[in-house]
Design a protein around this nucleic acid. Sequence first.
DNA 1: TACAATTTGTCCGTATGTATC
DNA 2: TGATACATACGGACAAATTGT
Lengths: 272, 272
Amino acid sequence: MPASRPPAAGASSDTGSGVPERPSRAVPAAHLRVQRVRPAYRQVADELRAQIVGGTLAAGERLPNEADLSRAFGVSRSTVREALRVLASQHLVETLRGVQGGSFVASPDPSQVVEDVGGALGVLVMTPQLRLHDLLEARLLLEPSAARLAAQRADAETVEAIQTAAGGRRDPRDPSGFVGHLDFHTTVLMATGNLMITMMGQPANDVLRTRLRRVGVEAEEWDRVDEWHRTIAGHIAAGEAEAAEEAMRDHLIALRPLYERDGLWTEDPLGR
Amino acid sequence: MPASRPPAAGASSDTGSGVPERPSRAVPAAHLRVQRVRPAYRQVADELRAQIVGGTLAAGERLPNEADLSRAFGVSRSTVREALRVLASQHLVETLRGVQGGSFVASPDPSQVVEDVGGALGVLVMTPQLRLHDLLEARLLLEPSAARLAAQRADAETVEAIQTAAGGRRDPRDPSGFVGHLDFHTTVLMATGNLMITMMGQPANDVLRTRLRRVGVEAEEWDRVDEWHRTIAGHIAAGEAEAAEEAMRDHLIALRPLYERDGLWTEDPLGR
DNA sequence: TACAATTTGTCCGTATGTATC
DNA sequence: TGATACATACGGACAAATTGT
C-alpha cells in the first residue's frame, strides 16, 4: 500500500535475489534490467489478489466500485483501473458495465487456465527453448495412461462421447474435420475424470492442432488416423485398459511423421 | 490547477480493509452476464498481442512510447496504459521507467508459465472443481515416466544435481528442509531434458508443497522420504530406467498418507 | 555532484457509453 | 421513457525514476 505518496524513498533496497556481480557495462541489456520500485498499480493489484486468493473476498463477490477503491487505497481511479486490468487478465476479477455492474471476484475456470497455458506455449514453441519434439514426447507420456484410466472409469455417456468423436468421419476439406480429429484426444483426456490430467494434456494438443493446420494432410492419412481412433475408442468402451493404453501409444508414435513434415524439428525422439 | 497535490480526498471515512461489503443486492448470476462490446483497451491489447505472437514485434524489441502508441491507435494514453497492463500481466511485455525505459517485448520465460499455472492451480484446488486427489494422480502418471527418462538421459552433471537434492538431509524444522525435499522431484523432472514435461509437472508440485506446509511432518517421516529419494537417485545414476520408474511410483504411493492428513480430500485414488 | 532529458507513473475533471430498474 | 449507477474514455498536467552529461 502506498501509505505516503510524496516521499520517493529512493533507497527501497529489496533486490535480495543475489545477482552477484555487477557488470557495470554501459549496455542496458534491455530486458535484464530490474524495476527498483513497485508502481502503485502493482501494489494495489497485489493487495487485492492477496485478498482474493486468501479468501477474504469470496468468488462471485462484488468489489467496491472504482471510486470507492481509489479512496480506500488512497490512489486515483486511473491507478485502480490499471490494477483491475492486471487482475482481470489473470482471470481473478471480471468487470461489467452499467448499473449492477462493477468488478466481481471471478470463479476460477479451468478452461481459461488451459487457454492461457496454450497461449504461453504457443509463444514458447516458437523459440528454441521448447521443441516440438518435447510436446510430442510429453503427450506420449500422458495420453496412453489417460486412455488406460478412461477405459477403467468411463461411464456409458462418456463412452458414447468418445465413440462419437472417433467415428464421425468428415470431409478433410471441412475445417470441422480438423477440430473433430483432435477433439478425440481431448475427449479421452476428459474421460479420465481427472481435471488435472485434462489441464496438463490439453494445451499441448491445442498447440499441435494449430501446427497441423499448416502442414497439409491428405484424406487417406486422415482415414488411417480415424481408424486408430476407432480402435482406441473400442478398447475404452470395452474396458480393456491395457489394450487402450497400448493402442494410444502406437497411435501417437505412428502420428509422428505427420508433424515431422513441419520441418521445425530435428531431434530424435525417445526410443521407448 | 493545484500546484501541489491535495491530500487525497480526505472526506472518505471508509477504512481500508478492502471490503466495505455492499449489502449484496441480490446480484443475478453475477458472472453469467456477458459484455456486449469490447472495450477499447481490450482491442488495443489484442492488436498488440497479435503483433507480438505473430512475430511483427520481436522479443526484446522496444515498443513506441505511450504517447506515440496513443496517437497510433487513436486512443488516449490512459487507454494505452490499461492495454499495456493487460499484456504485462500476461508476460508479453515489460515496462520500465526513465530514459531508456519504455515497454519491451518480453522474452518468453518458462518459469513464468510454471508460476502462473501454479497460481491458477492454487485457486482451483480450493474449489471442489479440482481435487487434491487429482493432483496426486496426475503426478503419479507423470513422474515415474520422468524418472525413467532421467535414467536414460541424465549426464554426469545432472546426476550429481539429483543426488545432491536427494542426499542432503536437513533439519526438519529448517524451512529449507521442505524446499530441499520437493526440489528432488523438480530436479528429476528437469533431468528429462524435456521442458514441456517440467512445465507440466512442476505446478502440481508447487501446490502440493505449500499444502504440505500446513500438515506437519515428523522427522522420522522425513527420513523415510529421503530414503526413497536416495533409492531413486541411485537408480537414475546407474541408468536403471525400469527400476527408477518403479521406485518413483512406489514412492509417490507411499507418500499418499502424508497428504491424506490434510483432511481436504476423501476421494479414493486409482487402484493401479 | 548537479542537472538535463526522456519516459513511465499518477492525478484530476469531465464527458460518454451501457445496462438495469 | 426516463433515472440511476456503474464502467469507459479522454486530455492535460505534474511527479517520479532512470540514465547520460
